[in-house]
């Protein structure tokens, strides 16, 4: 059902092809983002500057979404992490300039209707990403050698 609504929204809100890709990868579905989705988005950060800004704007929106949409936030962190490794250098600059967006997610809170703490994964992911963004040398090395970070940004299997 959510999939149908999303594709209707994609049309009525006039989202571009690039924006739709990011929206799908960071949706409320209980799976994903897949490795294929992330690698395609990362590759698109090298395209035109319009593509780049559309990707970052959409990730930014997702990162600042409300608690109920915690999957948006968690997936956006995963996609950002992936793009920091495989995407263009502009992603690194953008993320460093706007590090407070990620940093302030380290205390993200959301308890769902069944009393489950859905914020935990976000807090952990935000802590890891903040540490990475503050460590230039580590980020540079990980951008050169993808083996060292691959398990961290592997696709989310199930929520």
């Amino acid at each position: 059902m959510s999939k149908v609504i999303r594709s209707v929204k994609n049309v009525t809100k006039g989202y571009s092809n690039t924006q739709v890709k990011v929206r799908n990868a960071t949706s409320n579905d209980a799976w994903g983002p897949t490795g294929a989705e992330m690698s395609e988005i990362a590759r698109m950060t090298f395209d035109t500057s319009q593509d780049f800004f559309e990707i970052m704007d959409m990730l930014d929106k997702r990162l600042n979404d409300k608690g109920k949409n915690w999957r948006h936030v968690l997936k956006a962190l995963k996609v950002l992490d992936y793009c920091l490794h495989e995407g263009s250098e502009h992603v690194v600059v953008w993320a460093k300039d706007n590090i407070y967006i990620v940093k302030t997610l380290r205390e993200f809170q959301y308890i769902d209707e069944e009393g489950r703490d859905q914020g935990l994964n976000i807090r952990v992911a935000a802590r890891e990403l903040t540490a990475l963004l503050l460590d230039d040398e580590r980020l540079r090395n990980e951008r050169k050698d993808r083996k060292s970070w691959k398990n961290r940004v592997a696709g989310i299997e199930d929520h």
Binding site: N64, K66, G67, N98, Y100, I101, T104, L105, E107, F108, Q109
Partner: peptide, 13 residues
């Protein structure tokens, strides 16, 4: 609520 405090913090940045 953290989300509201966070919004205040993000605003200053």
């Amino acid at each position: 609520k953290r989300k509201h405090v966070r919004s205040c913090i993000v605003y200053t940045w």
